[in-house]
């Protein structure tokens, strides 16, 4: 049996505030390759904290997190950064597109810090934009585009470098139903190609399309 993409074992996150906040409490989660998980839960329950753990943006207080079979909690900063850059794609709720760079440049940025070759980067970025049907906007600045177009640009950037895990925080929060459908269709397509997807969402439409839904309440994770 192949290694799961995500394997959380008794993962806990406490913020050292006064009093300390236990944002994640003894989380166990296993997501196989091509898995598609929706995380739901009330505000402040720990969804973003969990996504930050999965994306190696923050370190857990205790427990273990194996990503593609690599134990990440003991990795040094530099190695964590490399794993993050090469295996994880992020789609942020607020897009985080650089406002002064064209859409194409924004997508190409995903490869700037990798070890891959510079040659062909432009072509790869254009292909990623094709996948989100945004080729016609590649020379636009993000500020000149609609919310849906920006969201698709952010997704195209996340697809650069073929990550094994795609993490999305409210990917459809800003979209109308037509654009939401388009993004969800793309997720199905990506999943069919072997990508693992974890999505935070408030919308039933999104969680219904995911194969699996987990709920976080006060830092405790439960399957639904």
């Amino acid at each position: 049996m192949p290694e799961p993409v995500i394997l959380l074992d008794d993962l806990t996150k406490e913020f050292p505030t006064d009093p300390p906040v236990r944002a994640l409490s003894v989380i166990n989660l296993r997501v196989e390759k091509s898995g598609y998980v929706a995380i739901v839960g009330p505000s402040g329950s720990g969804k973003s904290t969990l996504l930050n753990m999965l994306g190696l943006l923050d370190r857990p207080t205790s427990g273990s997190y194996r990503l593609d079979g690599i134990e990440t909690t003991t990795l040094k900063e530099g190695a964590r950064t490399k794993v993050r850059g090469s295996r994880i794609g992020f789609v942020f709720q607020s897009f985080h597109l650089l406002p002064h760079r064209s859409v194409l440049e924004n997508v190409m940025l995903a490869e700037v810090y990798g070890a891959g070759p510079r040659t062909g980067r432009r072509k790869r970025a254009m292909r990623a934009l094709e996948r989100v049907r945004l080729s016609h906007r590649m020379d636009f600045l993000p500020g000149r585009m609609s919310g849906g177009e920006r969201q698709r640009a952010a997704i195209a950037r996340a697809l650069m470098g073929e990550p094994s895990l795609l993490l999305c925080d409210e990917p459809t929060g800003n979209l109308d139903s037509k654009n939401t459908d388009a993004v969800l269709d793309l997720f199905d397509e990506l999943r069919a190609q072997g990508m693992t997807i974890v999505v935070i969402t408030h919308e039933n439409e999104v969680s219904d399309r995911a194969g699996r839904r987990v709920r976080i309440t006060d830092g405790i994770l439960a399957e639904e």
Partner: peptide, 16 residues
């Protein structure tokens, strides 16, 4: 700051 965060998410090391 947000740009720095994004770059780190995209694999930029501190030295980058």
């Amino acid at each position: 700051i947000a740009e720095i965060g994004l770059r780190r998410a995209l694999g930029a090391a501190r030295r980058h």
